[in-house]
Structures are given as structure tokens and as C-alpha cells.
């Protein structure tokens, strides 16, 4: 196994694209990406668990998440959602309790992959709280208190990077490419300093440009494009 060290930026970019590939709502992409980052970089699942967790995100309705107060105790029910869908909400509600001067404690139930609730620990640290999670009879009991200053799990990744098996990484990298659009000559007209139309017509100024026109149109259209290009350059 070859281990490589990823930067925070690389890890976030690929994980965010994988979340996009999973087809979740755009409004949840950054928070789920962070869950994936913490799961991969700090446990519980590490990068080996990323593919399975991403698959579990597909097709979910995040509005299934329910919160209730039972005798003053907050209960968060995932109703079958993957734990990452509840992790930020969990931390938010703990912060709210501490902010209101209450004991920060919750019962958390109904989540798939409940071990992944542990991503709430680094998420909490980033918001200044220390989260503790215990499991009993399939439910999680979560408490929090204000964290000592200085702990930022993201800064640790910024400074030291995060290790990953190289083969696994490139597999994830290739999978994340599915969030990018397939290339085509038509798509190539959506960027660049000049456009070569399907019939070889050139749109845009051709001064100071040494573009290989075969990159912008089919090989059979290059001659026409070159002719138009040179004609325009002389005018």
C-alpha cells in the first residue's frame, strides 16, 4: 500500500464532488462534505468507508429529520437517514442549549450508520463545544460542554495534511469526476477567447492567438476554421 498525504483543499474538493455525485440538495453539500472530511480524516470510517457512506446518502429526504422536546429533553430522530444528515443539527442544538444556559444533552435515535454520529465531535470543536457520545440499546446519548480554546481539527489537517492509500484516493478522484460535465466541441464554445462554430465559422477576435483550432472543432472543420481565422486576421 502506498500512502500519500492529501492537503485539506484536495480532500475537500474530491469529497464535495462525491457528495454532488450522490445527488443531494445543493444546500446540504458543504455540511455533508465536512462530515465526509471528518469521517475520512479523523475516523470513524476513514477513507475506506467513504464510498459506502456516499452511497447511503443517495435518494434520502433530509426533511425526515425530526426534533422534539420530551419533558425538557431534546430528542433528534433520524427516521432512517444516514447519520451525516443529523450531525450538524445535533451540534447546533447542543450549542443552543449551552447558549441558553441549559445542560446540553440529547437523545439521538433512528439514524443509519449511527457510529458516523461521531463526526459531531470535530464539528462541535469547530463551534467551541466538546461533544461526548455514548450508545445504549441502539440509541445515542449526547452531551456537550464548552471546549477549551485552541482545538481546531481543520487546522490540524491544514498543517499536517491527511494520509490516504494512493490507490483508493485515485479511485475516489476518478469517481468524483462524475460531478464534472462531459466534454464536447459544443461545450468548448462555453469558454475561451474565441468560438469556432460547428460549421467552422470563427467568432471573436483572432489577434494574438495561437490556438490549435482542432481543439475547438472537429478535425474535418479545421481547414474551414483556419481559413476564416486567417481571413479575419488580415482584415
Amino acid at each position: 500500500m502506498t500512502v500519500m498525504t492529501l492537503s485539506l483543499r484536495e480532500a475537500r474538493m474530491v469529497l464535495e464532488r462525491l457528495v454532488l455525485v450522490a445527488g443531494v440538495d445543493a444546500g446540504l453539500v458543504p455540511s455533508l462534505r465536512e462530515c465526509a472530511l471528518f469521517s475520512a480524516a479523523l475516523g470513524p470510517a476513514s477513507f475506506e468507508g467513504i464510498e459506502a457512506n456516499m452511497n447511503a446518502l443517495r435518494g434520502a429526504d433530509p426533511k425526515r429529520l425530526k426534533m422534539s422536546d420530551e419533558g425538557g429533553k431534546v430528542v433528534l430522530d433520524g427516521r432512517g437517514l444516514h447519520a451525516w444528515y443529523g450531525a450538524h443539527a445535533l451540534v447546533d442544538l447542543l450549542c443552543e442549549q449551552l447558549h441558553d444556559g441549559r445542560r446540553a444533552e440529547m437523545r439521538v435515535t433512528g439514524f443509519a450508520e449511527p457510529a458516523e454520529l461521531h463526526v459531531a465531535v470535530p464539528i462541535g470543536l469547530r463551534q467551541g463545544i466538546s461533544v461526548a457520545i455514548g450508545f445504549q440499546d441502539g440509541e445515542a446519548f449526547v452531551t456537550a460542554e464548552r471546549a477549551a480554546n485552541g482545538a481546531d481539527p481543520v487546522m490540524d489537517i491544514i498543517l499536517n495534511g491527511t494520509p490516504v492509500d494512493a490507490d483508493l484516493w485515485w479511485r475516489l478522484f476518478d469517481e468524483s469526476d462524475k460531478a464534472l460535465a462531459p466534454d464536447s466541441f459544443e461545450s468548448r464554445r462555453h469558454a475561451g477567447a474565441l468560438i469556432v462554430e460547428a460549421d467552422g465559422r470563427v467568432i471573436g477576435r483572432q489577434d494574438e492567438d495561437d490556438t490549435d483550432l482542432s481543439m475547438l472543432t472537429g478535425a474535418d472543420k479545421v481547414a474551414a476554421a483556419r481559413e476564416n481565422f486567417e481571413k479575419a486576421g488580415q482584415s
Binding site: 445543493a26 444546500g27 455540511s31 433530509p62 426533511k63 425530526k66 442544538l93 443552543e96
Partner: peptide, 13 residues
């Protein structure tokens, strides 16, 4: 906002 986002998770970003 914590409770708003439980009901409206797609607004988190």
C-alpha cells in the same frame, strides 16, 4: 436558527 434548520435543512448552506 438551530431549530429552523432542522425543519429546513436545504437552507443550511
Amino acid at each position: 436558527v438551530a431549530r429552523f434548520l432542522v425543519a429546513n435543512p436545504e437552507r443550511r448552506a
